[in-house]
């Protein structure tokens, strides 16, 4: 009996140790970005492609105010309310003290500099598909922005989701580093668009439905989803009947083919994609035209 108990205790300890190891926040090998020099000019494009300002600028900010990344946007979800943090270069309240590697770890693995998991309200499950060089450039650009001394607001997340270690398990199950759509037969342009749309552009975060753990349902890629507010829906992109030039124009001016305009969150997205070049918008459009509803 005593022996059985000892076995049980040992088993639980091994289980806990395995859980702890398996849920350890992942990091990028520092050598991966060794010798890379960030270019703030290229980084500006990455900033707009990644849509950073949509969540990290103050709500309702327009024009140059969108470069003040004080954070604050509330993202509601079935798991709680998440508040976008300050990512301005402020040393105390923002990410002024971060190294480039810190930003790489955050964007690729959702790992904070002090080795904790971020919640996937931050779209690292998409950003993991970003090129390291792009993140290095982004860091150089972020460093040029004005510091803002605004403190972060704590997320409102109840038990058990406030136990962040669990997110290590989420990452094991749901983090998918490679491309999502089968790219066989894609043109070079569509392939380039795939990198942007599935990675930094993070289209799938809203346009793909989520499962019971808030996980993207990759089998329903870009097939639309209910709006998290409970009212209305986020449209499907798979099988969209707009032409590629319609999509590119939409991403530039916000005008739909029948000259309505983007509303709600998509208007925020257009504020970002309007800053991209025509070639980038055309590539995203070429990719979206390849995605079929299954």
């Amino acid at each position: 009996m005593q022996r059985l108990l000892a076995y049980l205790v040992a088993l639980i300890l091994v289980g806990l140790a395995a859980f702890w190891l398996a849920t350890e926040p992942a990091r990028v090998d520092p050598s991966a970005i060794a010798g890379m020099n960030g270019d703030p000019v290229r980084g500006e494009r990455i900033f707009y492609l990644g849509g950073c300002a949509s969540c990290h600028a103050a709500a309702g900010a327009k024009g140059d105010e969108r470069l003040k990344l004080s954070g604050g946007l509330a993202l509601t979800s079935p798991f709680g309310t998440f508040y976008a943090p300050n990512i301005s270069p402020d040393a105390e309240f923002g990410i002024g003290g971060w190294s480039t590697l810190d930003l790489v770890n955050a964007m690729h693995f959702g790992t904070s500099p002090d080795g904790r998991h971020y919640y996937p309200a931050f779209p690292y499950p998409s950003y993991i598909r970003a090129e390291l060089a792009d993140i290095v450039d982004l860091k150089a650009f972020l460093d040029t922005l004005p510091p803002v001394a605004v403190a972060n607001q704590a997320h409102e997340v109840g038990f058990p989701f406030n136990f962040r270690r669990l997110l290590g398990g989420w990452n094991l199950l749901f983090l998918k580093p490679g491309p999502v759509a089968d790219a066989s037969g894609f043109s070079a342009e569509a392939l380039r668009g795939q990198g942007m749309a599935e990675g930094l552009g993070h289209c799938g975060e809203c346009h793909t439905p989520r499962g019971m753990f808030g996980n993207p349902e990759y089998s329903k890629w870009l097939q639309g989803a209910p709006h998290p507010s409970g009212k209305g829906k986020i449209p499907a992109l798979a099988g969209i009947d707009w032409s590629a030039s319609d999509i590119a124009e939409f991403l530039k001016s916000g005008f739909t083919p029948d000259f309505d305009t983007a509303g709600a969150e998509m208007a925020d997205v257009i504020d970002n994609t309007a800053h991209l070049g025509d070639a980038d918008r055309a590539a995203i459009a070429a990719y979206l035209k390849e995605i079929c509803p299954n």
């Binding site: 530039k252 001016s253 309505d260 305009t261 983007a262 509303g263 709600a264 208007a267 504020d271 309007a274």
Partner: peptide
């Protein structure tokens, strides 16, 4: 488009 979109947003 931005001006129209601002109100719709």
């Amino acid at each position: 488009g931005q001006a129209c979109g601002a109100c719709h947003k």
